[in-house]
Design a protein around this nucleic acid. Structure first.
Lengths: 120, 120
DNA sequence: AATAGTGGTAACCAAAAAGTAACTAATGGC
DNA sequence: GCCATTAGTTACTTTTTGGTTACCACTATT
């Protein structure tokens, strides 16, 4: 009845991944940075509904988890560029699959209409 | 400077996926059900740190999002079996990739040691 | 008559996450 | 001397999420 063995390690690494990227903003941030580095203000402009406080926080966490590189230039006004690390790049194809899955699984949803990111 | 076009639809479907599965418990639930259906009490026993209230809640949301099938049998004491829908089955390989990614990206973490799920 | 077993629900509380608004440092341009 | 600019920070409030305990319905067993 109770199974003899449950694959804890796989569950744990999955949970770990979700702890790192499984929230409201982080996948979007990674997604936006997939084409190259971007400044803080640009990220903030492209995700109009995020507050500066939360964006700062998410970027810090992603940096701590080794997904982002933060480059601060000694200029006035300040300039800070964020870019993906190799770790994060390895995640991109999986994020693409997650997005493909939603398109297939929820064809009734019109993702064309939605606005998370401002078009330039 | 500002890019001309940003692929909103892809970002939106990714966000949608995260809204559905991107939290503390749902990936574990899907993972546990990947080998077949399971009763409420069994899920509760295998995820020892989840409360009944929250488990009920997560199962309901997964059912509403079309990932779980809930079968209630008219017996005393009650029996309720949860199983994955086709939609959810389509997600399993992607969850596996997410878990593989964590193993690769964080080799210093010892996922063998962790205990989310009770071994039988 | 009391208890165990199952899958919940209700009321209540604590903690975490997110939002808001004002503020800062340092410089260039007017 | 004043304002704009950028990447934040701080203090405060609100919202969301999660946790705890007690309880219920219904039957079989003791």
């Amino acid at each position: 009845m109770a199974r003899k063995y449950i694959d804890n390690p796989n569950a744990c690494s999955l949970v770990h991944t979700m702890n790192i990227i499984g929230n409201k903003w982080k996948p979007i941030i990674l997604y936006l940075l997939s084409n190259g580095s971007m400044r803080f203000g640009m990220l903030n402009a492209l995700i109009p509904t995020i507050s500066k406080k939360v964006l700062t926080n998410q970027l810090k966490e992603l940096e701590n988890d080794g997904l982002l590189l933060r480059q601060s230039f000694a200029e006035i006004p300040p300039r800070v560029e964020y870019s993906l690390t190799e770790k994060a790049v390895g995640l991109l194809p999986v994020l693409k699959l997650l997005s493909d899955w939603a398109n297939e699984a929820y064809p009734e949803m019109d993702f064309e209409q939605c606005r998370i990111i401002e078009n330039g």
